[in-house]
Write a protein that binds this DNA or RNA. Structure first.
Length: 290
DNA sequence: GCGTCCAGGTCTACC
DNA sequence: GGTAGACCTGGACGC
């Protein structure tokens, strides 16, 4: 089962550019950059359980380019991933039977792993509003301009071509700036193949350690990036989700991370997804939870 | 309006 | 392996 709006609002990515939710006409738009550099603004709308996509581009799209757009959007929405095993596991637990009914579980991701890593670093050690500022500045300062306020997400070459001082002053990424620069340079130079992580043969623990070799990606960021790679073995604890756990399970009282981890350990390789969905279940009462 | 304090993950140095 | 302190920004608060 696939639920469009539950996927869009699976976490905060939908409110970071180049994603944009338009609540007035109930659409999700996303500016994409194709392999040959063509910019395509795609607007997705759900009608009677089916998703329609309209394209705008500076030149007419070939059939292959339209297929490329559809493939990128499918990657973002995870429509081709098989969640049947997860749903079978969910119905074994009374508290999780709502998950398959709601069509929950797919976590929105970016067209590229590069973008997901950059955004994840921009969520660390700051408020959500600062994350929005950093990502907004990245697109507006380094992305390609499609017009009408739409900018693409910058590629590794674009970011690698900047300086630490530029990132600090204009993007407001602060002490993360040298981390972002080092990461973008490694990807641009071909020394780090992050796009291969989505199909990596490594075990999840090995991949977790590899992700953490990127400076700025610690336990929280790597654990959550793995969820966007289709691996759910890590909880990805941060202050917000810890607070939710305390609220739901310990009357607001702090508990050790190890206590949280023990509670979900029996859920095996899906525990990170069960945990996240439980903490955000109340979002599912609203079409636009934030 | 200005200064101070604090929250938020990760890194590094040190034990 | 565990821990303290530094990193940077923006919001809250007091004056």
């Amino acid at each position: 089962m696939f639920n469009f709006w539950r996927t869009v609002y699976s976490h905060g990515w939908c409110s970071l550019p180049p994603f944009l939710v338009n609540k007035e006409d109930s659409t999700l738009s996303r500016l994409l950059e194709l392999k040959n550099g063509t910019l395509v603004l795609s607007v997705l709308k759900e009608r009677k359980g089916k998703i329609s996509v309209t394209f705008s581009s500076q030149a007419a799209l070939s059939a292959d380019q339209k297929a490329e757009v559809r493939n990128l959007l499918a990657q973002c929405l995870r429509v081709n991933e098989d969640f049947s095993e997860f749903y079978r596991e969910a119905v074994r637990h009374p508290g999780s039977r709502w998950i398959p009914k709601a069509g929950a579980g797919r976590l929105l991701r970016s067209p590229t792993v590069f973008e997901d890593v950059v955004k994840m670093i921009c969520t660390t050690n700051c408020s959500w509003s600062l994350t929005e500022t950093m990502v907004g500045n990245l697109t507006a300062r380094l992305g390609k301009n499609f017009g009408a306020g739409n900018f693409s997400f910058p590629g590794p070459e674009s970011m690698a071509g900047t300086t630490e001082a530029f990132l600090r002053k204009n993007v407001r990424t602060g002490y993360r700036s040298p981390y972002l620069l080092e990461f973008a340079t490694a990807v641009a130079d071909g020394k780090l193949d992050v796009e291969g992580w989505r199909s990596s043969p490594l075990s999840t623990d090995e991949l977790f350690e590899q992700v953490k070799t990127v400076k700025g990606m610690g336990d929280y960021a790597a654990g959550n990036l793995l969820k966007l790679l289709g691996r759910y073995d890590y909880l990805g604890l941060d202050s917000w989700v810890r607070g939710k756990y305390y609220e739901f399970h310990s009357h607001g009282r702090k508990v050790k991370d190890s206590t949280i981890e023990k509670r979900y350990a029996s859920l095996g390789k899906w525990r990170g997804l069960f945990f996240w969905l439980e903490m955000t279940r109340y979002w599912y009462d609203h079409k636009f939870p934030f």
